[in-house]
Write a protein that binds this DNA or RNA. Structure first.
Lengths: 218, 218
DNA sequence: CGCCGTATCGTGACAATGTCACGATACCTC
DNA sequence: GAGGTATCGTGACATTGTCACGATACGGCG
């Protein structure tokens, strides 16, 4: 029998963690197949065999990022105040972006030209989205927010993502105080706005998962 | 005297427009110095002489993007309804992102590893920011919003940027109706939340829990 | 104990790209 | 028409993603 196989799932896991570390350490520019393979004590063809190329490796790092973000959310504990819990989720999102700026950039931007996170990859982050939807649902159930849970979650995620992107780019303010103030203003404002009954009186199904509306102009 | 100089500011302008077109047409992957130079009927060293390298060219495209966005904002006309005007600005922002997805990605994300828009580049987009701040100021002056203009503008830009990023990635919803609905919900909610007086320590705004209950019919 | 077959691995080659030195080129002056 | 010179583009180099293919190591067999 031939030599013992080294490119196993264990090496795959190791390379993945090495890749995350390399990305976090050296940034996007340092994330080359040669460097990652060298850090993992192997050669570049291993990247090809285990991940199908650089894009596949980036894709796995992308998934790993959502896994870690989900872990952060999972560490949060629900209290008797659903509104505070929802704000804590958004706070955890912000902290994740500050602790892992490059990883967050990979997850919510597209710094690698040959990896396009699209609708297919959205499913990977569904656990994260589910977390936010759940936190929203507890608010709507308590009457603190009104509207469709998934729509509200989308709005909150978009707001948090935009704030995190601005903060990462250094565009949200020079001083920590101003950044904190703007985060707080944004979150409190959007929650206050969502606390009002939706303007449309048509009907508000409590758990409408799918938007019922076929094509329709605004 | 030697041959006539070709790498003039005119060629620079031409190359810039060619670069914008190439980026919009072929995406980030097609944006190479050779391709842009070839489209502009010149050679790669011209990129180096006129822009200082690829990063400089990307930087100029970045500025051009903000210039065009500013033109869109400038085309909007103020009406008697400051709130509607502010929403129109955000709508123009959304439409710009939909019309120029790759350019918007360059402006608000960082798809090129060797160009890092930072605080220094923020000044370039200050005209755009000034537009939003101005629209906000007219709302605060009219008593429609309360708070610091620049803070409110930051929140609105972050929200619009996050929504645009999600929409560009195909994460905001599968149907146009759902995307429109979430945009509208986000904007109306944030504006409603910002319409309340800034956070009193122990009070939430009156719209937080109570239905609007306007004091009188307009 | 030594050889061999085979699956496995890493070296090295190839194409594409950013960068830029340097020789080829074209224009003006005399 | 010849010469000088600023200008331009060809071509070379380093880096990177990709992957074919020969080198290698391991277990089995004589």
């Amino acid at each position: 029998m031939p030599r013992i196989k080294q490119r196993t799932s264990e090496l795959r896991e190791h390379m993945l963690s090495v890749a995350v570390a390399t990305l976090a350490d050296g940034g996007v520019a340092a994330f080359t197949t040669r460097r990652v393979a060298g850090q993992a004590q192997t050669s570049t063809p291993a990247v090809y065999e285990l991940f199908g190329g650089k894009a596949g490796l980036v894709r796995e790092v992308f998934f790993e990022g959502f896994r870690r973000l989900g872990e952060r959310f999972g560490a949060l504990e629900a209290t008797a105040d659903p509104r505070a819990d929802l704000m804590a989720v958004l706070g955890a999102f912000r902290e994740f972006g500050r602790d892992n700026p490059v990883l967050a950039e990979l997850m919510f931007s597209r710094p690698f030209a040959d990896f396009d996170p699209g609708p297919a990859e959205l499913a990977a982050g569904s656990t994260v989205r589910e977390f936010i939807v759940a936190a929203v649902r507890r608010c709507t159930a308590a009457g603190l927010l009104h509207g469709t849970d998934s729509d509200i979650a989308h709005v909150l995620v978009a707001l948090a993502q935009g704030l995190a992107a601005q903060e990462a780019a250094g565009w949200l303010g020079a001083s920590p105080a101003s950044r904190d103030r703007r985060w707080a203003l944004a979150v409190t404002a959007v929650l206050a706005g969502l606390a009002a009954d939706p303007a449309q009186p048509a009907r508000r199904g409590p758990a409408a998962e799918m938007p019922p509306a076929p094509p329709g102009p605004p």
